[in-house]
Design a protein around this nucleic acid. Structure first.
Length: 562
RNA sequence: UCCCCGAUGGUGUAAUGGUAACACACCGGUUUUUGGUGCCGUUAUUCCAGGUUCGAGUCCUGGUCGGGGAACCA
């Protein structure tokens, strides 16, 4: 497929975002021979979250759209915070999302040797020097926005001396913090990052990949552009916060005379009622405010997966939020919409009663079991059908019966008639309450000739209720989730505020829920619609064959204003 | 105080000097053996002031507001 084919076709009607426009311009002008290579460069110091999912979809999606490929590169230049646990989790999440790093898997640490050589090159070109001052001293010389900085006393150190000291740093002859290597740029630049930034520091810390091989580690700015360049990345896409870094990114590439990768920044994803900072997510985990990185309330990919989100829904969501340069806050309802939209088409429907009370059909003989046919998914005829046991004693939802009701009430009540989904129309007879007025049982009679699909009774029922036959039900636990934070902007206030903003009711555990028998076969990864209730999936952590545990991914949209 | 970026309905995104549109949310109607889905519809938008132009959301100037920017983090 030529690039032009990718540009034409059905997709061409969709408006292009600013990066797509730029790429099409690049292709048209023959830049890099039309080659497109992007990269996704996570630091392995935390789990991927929904914000990363957007970045992933942008970098992978753009490459795919224009006939290119994408590299996965672990940006592991700071061994203090990084570990192989995170590397594995990131790989797993990427694969689950359905992305394939066809360009290959790389690590910035693969380039430590080349980066060291680049540093020597800068020293030899008089563009880097070793500074032996303390961090505080260097900070004070940095100046301030609007005020130029002053030069380090070591700024004009002789080339040979710089080289020797840097080689000694590498050889481990100097202690942590005793020396750094700095780029020699411009101490009065308006961009503070260009005021002789530190590019190498000493750290006597084992690296999760290179072990004790190195005691000097490159800083982000000295590693990122060069790594892009080494891999021949054509379009290096990152978030807005790196805009100020672009001049530095370009300065290194130009000074070293290496392949000119080009950085373009776009706005990261923000979601209301959600925190996206890795540091704060880590805090939630460490303080046990949640059940680990994959708690179903977490915005992590692993949390969303455990909750019942599908990769398709997440990718659709990422597509819909768009790519632009202005800061944004997406409404979580868009994420939920994407899930419902996907699951409505695909999820098998089953019956489950979360807060069960007895429903006794008086005119059905006890012991009688009738197997009724029901569609697995009315949206998808291919999904087929199954049978459901029906009998005298059923479970119904406590919420579906009320004594005092108005005309908007469609469900069961004294004097009312409702249809039991895929079964019969039933009419109220009486009910039993306990001392506190809690309804324990509702008694109804089945309307003759009202069987689902062959109803000739002429009786019309406004409401339809879900139910489960008591004789064949499976008892299980169901976990309902609400948003983790009460405030729409939990990161907005003071830094520590987000922990005080936790929603105390974000997790509700229901036991004694009654499920239809087919759910005994439920397996991890399949998401079901519990009729009238929402989408649910088996919890991958706590569910056992003897005691199933389900998570609610999202409710059904509730149109009832009752 | 200085530098960079941005500003279009409630929330996002488009309109590339020529009728401000699409999605989500909201509200209403309709269909429905899920108060779901589907279908139809309502409400609502160019930060401000000048300028250029036959014509400005778009270009220019100035302002306002928001975000980012000083780490031996990425």
């Amino acid at each position: 497929m030529s690039n032009q084919d990718a540009v034409d076709g059905d997709e061409s009607k969709k408006p292009l975002n600013f990066i797509e426009q730029k790429i099409e311009l690049d292709i048209a002008s023959g830049k890099n021979g039309g080659r497109i290579l992007t990269r996704f460069p996570p630091e392995p110091n935390g789990y991927l979250h929904i914000g990363h999912a957007k970045a992933i979809c942008v970098s992978f999606g753009l490459a795919e759209k224009y006939g290119g490929i994408t590299n996965l590169r672990f940006d592991d230049t700071n061994p203090e915070k990084e570990s192989v646990e995170y590397v594995d989790a990131i790989r797993r999440d990427l694969t689950w999302l359905g992305f394939d790093w066809k360009g290959g898997e790389f690590y910035t640490s693969d380039y430590f040797g080349k980066l060291y050589a680049f540093a020597l090159q800068l020293i030899d070109q008089g563009q880097a020097y070793v500074d032996g001052q303390s961090a505080e001293e260097m900070a004070s010389q940095k100046g301030a926005p609007g005020t130029p900085g002053t030069s380090s006393p070591h700024r004009d150190r002789a080339l040979e001396e710089n080289r020797q000291l840097f080689e000694e740093m590498k050889a481990g002859k100097h202690a942590d913090g005793s020396y750094v290597l700095r780029a020699r740029i411009d101490m009065s630049n308006d961009n503070m990052l260009l005021r002789d930034p530190v590019i190498y520091r000493i750290k006597f810390i084992d690296h999760h990949r290179t072990g004790k091989d190195w005691v000097i580690y490159p800083m982000y700015d000295f590693a990122h552009g060069q790594s892009d360049s080494i891999e021949g990345i054509t379009h290096s896409l990152c978030s807005l916060e790196f805009e100020n870094h672009r001049p530095l990114y370009n300065w290194f590439i130009e000074s070293l005379g290496i392949f000119p990768s080009e950085q373009t920044e776009f706005a990261r994803l923000n979601l209301n009622y959600t925190i996206m900072s890795k540091r704060k997510l880590l805090r939630l985990v460490e303080d046990n405010a949640v059940d680990g990185w994959d708690d179903p309330r977490m915005p992590t990919i692993s949390g969303l997966r455990r909750r019942g989100y599908t990769p398709e829904a997440i990718r659709e969501f990422a597509d819909r939020v768009g790519v632009a340069k202005r800061n944004n806050t997406i409404d979580v309802s868009l994420l939920e919409w994407a899930l419902r939209d996907d699951l409505n088409r695909r999820a098998p429907r089953v019956m489950a009663v979360l807060n069960p009370i007895k429903l006794v059909v008086l005119n059905v003989p006890s012991g009688e079991v009738e197997w009724l046919q029901t569609d697995n998914n009315p949206e998808d005829p291919e999904a087929g059908s199954r049978t459901l046991p029906f009998g005298r004693e059923l479970w119904m939802e406590a919420d579906d019966f009320k004594v005092d009701v108005n005309k908007k009430w469609f469900r069961l009540a004294p004097g009312r008639t409702v249809r039991l989904k895929s079964a019969y129309i039933v009419e109220y007879v009486d009910h039993i309450e306990d001392d506190q007025g809690q309804v324990l049982e509702v008694h109804v009679n089945r309307v003759a000739n009202s069987k689902s699909g062959e109803d000739t009774s002429g009786v019309k029922a406004k409401g339809t209720l879900h139910w489960v036959a008591a004789s064949h039900s499976i008892e299980s636990e169901v976990r309902l989730y609400d948003r983790l934070f009460m405030s729409a902007d939990p990161e907005g206030g003071e830094d520590t505020n987000f922990m005080n903003n936790l929603n105390p009711d974000s997790l509700q555990i229901l036991s004694g829920c009654q499920l239809e028998p087919s759910l005994s076969e439920a397996s991890i990864g399949v998401v079901y619609q519990f009729t009238r209730l929402g989408y649910f999936t088996v919890d991958s952590k706590y569910s056992k064959q003897e005691k199933l545990v389900f998570n609610r991914a999202v409710t059904l949209k509730d149109g009832w204003k009752g």
